[in-house]
């Protein structure tokens, strides 16, 4: 699956990267990324996840081919 991150998450991960781990849900992905970079955990725990411009919940089932966007808390305006 392809992962894309924004804003403060770019301090912890590459802006876009491929992940080949066997993960079944968004919750698994969140945990996996926390293990890859524990310093990112407080931010990851507050992020929303989106697949094809739609927000998805922690229970969303991954096929492994998605483009997943990780959205930190907004700070527009």
């Amino acid at each position: 699956m392809r992962i894309q991150v924004f804003a403060i998450l770019k301090d912890f991960f590459k802006k876009e990267f491929e992940l080949n781990a066997k993960l079944y849900t968004i919750a698994d992905l969140r945990t996996h990324l926390s293990l890859l970079n524990p310093n990112a955990t407080p931010v990851l725990n507050r992020c929303r996840f989106a697949v094809q411009d739609e927000f998805v919940t922690d229970e969303y089932t991954l096929t492994g081919n998605e483009h997943i966007v990780i959205i930190p808390p907004s700070s527009g305006g």
């Binding site: 403060i8 959205i71 930190p72 907004s74 700070s75």
Partner: peptide
């Protein structure tokens, strides 16, 4: 709603040369 929900982020660049992703919805 734009400020709280829409995926837009600001990075503040300060006069002392530091920068910070800030003002997040909490």
């Amino acid at each position: 709603r734009i400020k709280h929900e829409v995926p837009i982020w600001k990075c503040e660049h300060f006069a002392d040369g530091s920068k910070e992703w800030g003002g997040n919805c909490n």
